[in-house]
């Protein structure tokens, strides 16, 4: 009978697939982290809309602010775009870093966490791999904003070198910052809570800064806030790298905050990920 033959064939195929064979040694630490990084890239491939979600607001800001307020704020729309674009770049990448938290949150609330944990690979490789893959996400965010900027007439005085340097700086900053969101992600129940909390942290950081306007016109207390705001420090460093007024000191200053965040929230993330659940 046809059905019986078919069944026997399926049985044979499964049996063949299960035949004992030499088994390789499980992936080492680096290789496991890279494999999880590859998984993060696949997620970008399957859900590119996530990237656009995060850059669409900054892009709207770029267009709106440049054409609406550019003349008033900087004398001409061209001059304002030159001022604004590095700030928007920072805003986009910083918002993208919330997504590292999202993947982790989804993982721990699903059975896949148990599968990864029951496999013979380093228990933290899913966390570090996700974060490594997300560096690509940050880079793509930067490239999208640059592309829009160039279309609108933005020019980087330092050319390709400046652009590459800024992208690397933003990657470092966002990777460090994302430990805040991975920590959040391991504490709250749903991905949407991660998003909401993430935006609550980031909104004030990006607005009470020099992203949109020169703080010289702000009240004194706000100027103090801006002077200490890590996002503002990053914007200053990024502007410097793009218009040629940058310095190693500015870059180093902008990296203090992500280093502190990594030192504090990195271990917290690891401990939270490893705890029994």
């Amino acid at each position: 009978m046809a059905i019986d033959t078919q069944r026997r064939d399926v049985g044979a195929a499964i049996r063949a697939a299960l035949k004992p064979r030499p088994q390789p040694k499980p992936a080492g630490t680096v290789s496991a982290v890279l494999t999880f990084g590859w998984r993060a890239l696949l997620k970008i491939k399957h859900m590119p809309e996530q990237l656009f979600d995060v850059v669409v607001t900054p892009i709207m800001f770029t267009v709106l602010f440049t054409y609406l307020f550019g003349g008033a704020l900087a004398g001409s729309t061209d001059a304002y775009l030159q001022y604004l674009l590095p700030g928007i770049l920072v805003q986009s990448v910083v918002f993208t870093s919330v997504y590292s938290g999202l993947t982790l949150n989804t993982d721990i609330s699903k059975g896949i966490y148990d599968r990864f944990r029951s496999m013979p690979v380093w228990s933290l490789s899913p966390v570090l791999g996700t974060m490594a893959g997300d560096v690509v996400r940050y880079t793509v965010s930067s490239l999208i904003v640059f592309a829009i900027g160039f279309l609108m007439g933005y020019e980087a005085a330092t050319g390709i070198l400046g652009i590459v340097a800024v992208i690397l700086l933003l990657d470092l900053f966002a990777a460090g910052l994302s430990f805040i969101f991975t920590t959040l992600a391991l504490l709250v129940r749903t991905p949407s809570t991660v998003m909401t909390l993430g935006w609550m942290v980031l909104m004030p950081l990006t607005f009470a800064s020099n992203v949109f306007v020169d703080p010289a016109t702000m009240p004194a207390w706000l100027q103090t806030v801006v002077a200490w705001n890590p996002v503002a420090l990053l914007v200053t460093a990024a502007r410097g790298l793009l218009d040629g007024t940058g310095s190693a000191a500015l870059v180093a200053g902008s990296l203090v905050a992500p280093l502190v965040v990594t030192a504090v929230f990195g271990p917290v993330t690891m401990a939270l990920y490893r705890r029994e659940r």
Binding site: A27, W38, D114
Partner: peptide, 24 residues
């Protein structure tokens, strides 16, 4: 596990390749 222990965002093939790579 009791609740699907595969990655919903990935394809079936990518899921298996992921596990195979982790296993070396």
């Amino acid at each position: 596990g009791q609740f699907a222990s595969v990655d919903e965002d990935l394809t079936g093939r990518e899921n298996l390749v992921l596990i195979a790579r982790l296993l070396g």
